[in-house]
Design a protein around this nucleic acid. Structure first.
Lengths: 201, 201
DNA sequence: ACCTGAACACCGTTCAAGT
DNA sequence: ACCTGAACACCGTTCAAGT
């Protein structure tokens, strides 16, 4: 067994069962080696998580290089979101700490290039990139994939329970809020508004 | 000691030392009671985290009700960001699961009302709210407060290490990327572009 | 009723021993 | 050299006992 194979096994484990299900002991058992043998491949758990990010980064599916800057940026944002949703724990592994792994830089490089191609000067492209980054990662982390009918009903029910005189706006928009919980359409809407605001036609 | 006091102690603990530092054993010792006494106040650790969210929600500082819809929405986004940065673990406690606590709804109510006041119809306000939410939470989680000079130098150094022929765009925008790492100015820029895109003048 | 120590089933990691 | 079990210092939580 190689380090890459172990990191791959760890990634499929967290994709299926969540980050909290990953323990050195359980991973070792999954792979069929002694727990302490893992420490021959990774200095510690943090090092294993870094290796998992590298493996996941290879799974990024670059958007097709066709069309104008606007539609290419939309495709790039969509591809980044799809990538994060395929590995839901990616956004949890590193909170605020910037990811300085080369594999992750490859994803950023594409986005930055598209913004420069769209005509933004370098400092402006850097600022714009960060805004897109925060929105895409934020959507993946806090809004997520298509909400289930059950989730929609739950939020509807919760809003309807609120006293109407204290929460008039939420009551008014309750139906819309349930629909806007997450999903591809909601994400695309925000992405489009954001690119509008950045002046990318 | 009351449950509120315990939740407050837990919140100051995680604000200072991070979420991973919070254990039932350590919290009990901090408060000066036996570990198992905590379970008289909270069913389990998850229940304690919910109580911490409620305590933190009271700490939201509503923006002043002055000016037009645009400047009020800017002030609202700023206030929400400041609130999250005051309690950096808030964004970690619940990943994707929607927060259905009444105290958190109070923060949402203000934002939704501002969007309705700005002239958006209810379904559009709901979609727009979600976009603002994703951006503000995403900024707090992934970009964070003012980057230190050291963090800026670290990202600069990392980018300069990349092979220039593989990462031309990142190299070109390296200085800007370091400046756009986070901080209030970067956040305001994105907030303004987002409101532009939503057609809120 | 209220509080809590002991115990159980887990962690990550060090250290020494096994091959 | 490579692998790993035992041990240590932790977890959250159940259960039974203490007042």
């Amino acid at each position: 067994v190689s380090g890459d194979e172990i990191a791959h096994a760890a990634l499929t484990l967290v994709d299926r069962d969540g980050l909290e299900a990953l323990s050195m002991r359980r991973l070792a058992e999954d792979v069929g080696i002694g727990t302490m043998t893992l420490y021959g491949y990774f200095r510690d758990k943090r090092d294993l998580l870094d290796a998992m990010i590298d493996i996941a980064a290879e799974d990024f599916d670059p958007p097709p290089a066709r069309g104008g800057p606007r539609s290419r940026l939309e495709a790039y944002m969509r591809a980044t979101r799809d990538w994060l949703l395929r590995h839901p724990t990616l956004v949890q592994i590193r909170g605020s700490e910037p990811i300085v792994r080369p594999a992750a830089f490859r994803v950023s490089e594409i986005g930055m290039q598209l913004l420069l191609d769209a005509g933004l000067d370098p400092p402006e492209a850097a600022r714009a990139f960060r805004v897109l980054f925060d929105y895409v990662f934020g959507s993946a982390a806090f809004s997520g994939p298509e909400p289930t009918a059950q989730q929609r009903r739950a939020i509807q029910a919760a809003v309807v329970t609120l006293p109407p005189d204290e929460f008039p706006a939420l009551r008014t928009a309750a139906g819309g809020a349930a629909a806007a919980l997450g999903g591809a359409e909601q994400f695309e809407y925000g992405a489009a508004r954001l690119l509008d605001g950045l002046g990318i036609a």
